[in-house]
Design a protein around this nucleic acid. Structure first.
Lengths: 203, 203
DNA sequence: CGGTCATTTGAGAAGCCTCAATATTAGTGG
DNA sequence: CCACTAATATTGAGGCTTCTCAAATGACCG
């Protein structure tokens, strides 16, 4: 029922929009990007998934994947057959509850970043979000690697890549963070939290 | 297990952020606004729920409501005890699947509007979204009432109320829509769809 | 070392927000 | 039924943020 799959390498598709849905997957290692292509063929980044997080949950409804998922670096997954875990959940109320909770948690996660409408606020919220998510999985909260490109970050945060670059530089100049390529060090997380009007207390 | 509750009147709270979660609810009539208050006490509108839609799904995880819900007009609900429907789902695989599907569908709904970053695109996407949702429930797709205020729409769409007003006026001047107070008539839905880069084919 | 891609930087234009004032609507009490 | 009030909505002007376009720099790979 649970298969260890991978490694996927940077650029490999894990699933594509429109493919029939049969399994959700937990990221064991690496970073996954989910995205859709809009009517003009432009990419719209929906999110990034870190180790410990589950992808494919939005595909249960409609029984097809509504988005694409690609590996941003070397990715290992636990593939979980949905029909089978679903059947098992019928007999194990604890598992069922776990699945309900997992799905519920996923609802409205995107809203966090959407809330703030200054670019600096969105970037601050994004960095804190990644930080919290790494921390929860036992990685360092104040020093981490943003596997994705600036363009992908900007796309996700709905700003031009140039703006993303400038915002990061400004934060770096103010010594709120340190940036070395795609590696980020949070020097003053408190100040970041102040910038992100919507500080997320839940994660 | 299912209680018909209401009527709630405009401004009445259905639940408040932080309250213990015990039930989801289907809207039978009226319009519900869900929102959170950020650290500065500003309201952040998360969404609007129409008849036939379910609220409270994001509260399963954490067992407390993570947001507020208020009635925007006269609202009637079907209140569904979550522990009980959950228990029932264990014995009825069809019901369980239905719940999984419901939760899955809710994931990433907010992302649709977030995608476009011109104010006009977001407004167009919003109007089409409401239209589709009314249509799916058997109401008119091209003529409907936006129960909420301009300020609430603007807040939801992350723009200033003045901008929302101007965008609606522009669309009205171009005869893409007709606006009479809070009543909207879609005169040229095709043109709206073109404006909303991310036209949602799924709903 | 050369080529490709990602990133940064600069300058100008466009979009949107803010502030302020006016207009409209709905509700209230005389 | 008609002021009167409060809330909502619209409109205008100016300024700031962010985007676009263009070019230069830097990182990575064969």
């Amino acid at each position: 029922m649970v298969d260890h799959v991978g490694p996927y390498h940077a650029g490999d598709y894990i699933f594509r929009a429109g493919e029939p849905f049969d399994a959700i997957a937990a990221v064991r290692a690496g970073m996954v990007k989910t995205f859709v292509d809009d009517s003009l063929g432009n990419e719209q980044v929906l999110g990034f998934s870190l180790p410990g997080e589950v992808i494919g949950l939005n595909a249960i409804h409609g029984s097809r994947y509504p988005c694409n998922a690609v590996a941003l670096d070397t990715v290992h997954l636990c593939r979980i057959s949905f029909p089978r875990i679903s059947m098992l959940a019928s007999r194990m109320p604890g598992l069922q509850a776990k699945l309900f909770s997992l799905l519920s948690a996923e609802i409205g996660k995107a809203a966090l970043l959407a809330a703030n409408y200054r670019t600096e606020e969105r970037m601050a919220a994004f960095l804190l979000d990644i930080s919290n998510r790494y921390a929860r999985r036992g990685f360092s909260a104040h020093r981490f690697n943003l596997t994705m490109t600036r363009t992908e970050i900007a796309n996700y945060l709905r700003m031009a890549p140039e703006t993303a670059s400038r915002v990061l530089r400004r934060l770096s100049d103010e010594e709120v963070i340190a940036v070395k390529q795609r590696e980020i060090i949070l020097l003053q997380p408190e100040r970041l939290a102040l910038m992100a009007a919507t500080d997320d207390a839940s994660e």
